[in-house]
């Protein structure tokens, strides 16, 4: 009765736009990755070089270091957010007056522009008038300079990410906790299980799909962090907080070495996809088991 042609017609604008801005660039980057293309070089056009760009890339210490920083950052940020978010969500499951108010306020960082989050944090840590700087320096006597100390800069970016994204984890965990049925928990309590055992054997296994989904999305987003860190530290001091997205944005992109840049982009994409795919497999396996 209904022709499929009309259905495709409704779908086609979406597909065309996604193809132009999503799929085509992917094919293009794969293609250019095999060429030498530098508009300021003697030879202006594309020169086929086979895998030379990738050969250079696997020995590129800057690139590999920024990959390693990204993984380190992702690990610390996401694991802290999970623990904090879970604890906070646990406290929100109870009904108490003002709960809605707290929840609304808590969702605020999720809506703020990442670049503004960076600005926000920069204002907190500027030597001279930032409150965090003041407290650490005056009350605890710690010399706090994110422009000079690599470890402090790293910790500050992690803290900023925690500030920005813990609310997200809290809210998803809350959705998970409220969907856990009460009966098994209560009967386990009657049988004399303690709080820890209830978590270990009932709550967490039941929430596993949501926990993994949250981890998945958080890792994806942490791996591609750019704006906040750019605003807070600019990737410095040195390259201590130059995470992979920032590396492409600040170092690779401004150079006109398009072939090498494409190879870098593609390899970043490759690592992200493999990482996410492994997580994805873990999620679907755990879903099948539960």
């Amino acid at each position: 009765m209904k022709s499929n042609r009309l259905g495709w017609g409704f779908l086609s604008p979406t597909l065309i736009i996604l193809a132009i801005t999503g799929f085509l660039p992917f094919l293009y980057v794969v293609y250019i990755g095999f060429f030498d293309w530098n508009i300021f070089a003697a030879q202006k056009g594309l020169v086929y070089t086979g895998a030379n760009n990738y050969r250079r890339l696997v020995f590129d210490a800057d690139f590999l270091r920024s990959l390693w920083y990204t993984i380190k950052f992702t690990f610390w940020a996401v694991s802290s957010e999970l623990i904090l978010g879970f604890a906070l969500a646990q406290l929100l499951t109870k009904d108490f007056p003002g709960k809605t108010f707290f929840r609304i306020i808590h969702a605020l960082p999720l809506m703020i522009a990442p670049i503004a989050v960076g600005a926000l944090w920069r204002l907190l840590v500027i030597p001279g008038f930032g409150p965090i700087w003041y407290v650490l320096e005056e009350w605890f006597g710690i010399e706090y300079r994110i422009g000079a100390s690599t470890s402090q800069a790293f910790i500050t970016t992690v803290l900023m990410d925690i500030w920005h994204w813990t609310p997200f984890v809290t809210l998803t965990m809350l959705a998970g906790l409220t969907s856990v049925p009460k009966d098994p928990v209560e009967s386990a309590m009657v049988d004399g299980a303690n709080q820890w055992q209830v978590y270990r054997y009932i709550t967490i296994p039941m929430m596993m799909p949501i926990i993994l989904t949250t981890v998945f999305i958080r890792i994806m987003d942490a791996l591609r962090i750019v704006d906040e860190v750019y605003m807070l530290t600019g990737g410095g001091p040195g390259d201590a907080t130059r995470y992979i997205g920032l590396h492409i944005f600040r170092v690779v992109f401004p150079k006109t070495d398009y072939g090498y840049g494409s190879a870098t982009s593609l390899l970043t994409l490759y690592f992200t996809i493999v990482f996410c795919w492994l997580l994805f497999v873990a999620i679907s396996t755990s879903q099948k088991n539960s």
């Binding site: 959705a175 998970g176 969907s179 799909p209 949501i210 989904t213 994805f280 999620i283 679907s284 879903q287």
Partner: peptide, 11 residues
């Protein structure tokens, strides 16, 4: 779709 996140149900 609270029990099974829809995202992975569509694989």
């Amino acid at each position: 779709t609270e029990e099974t996140p829809a995202e992975f149900a569509v694989a």
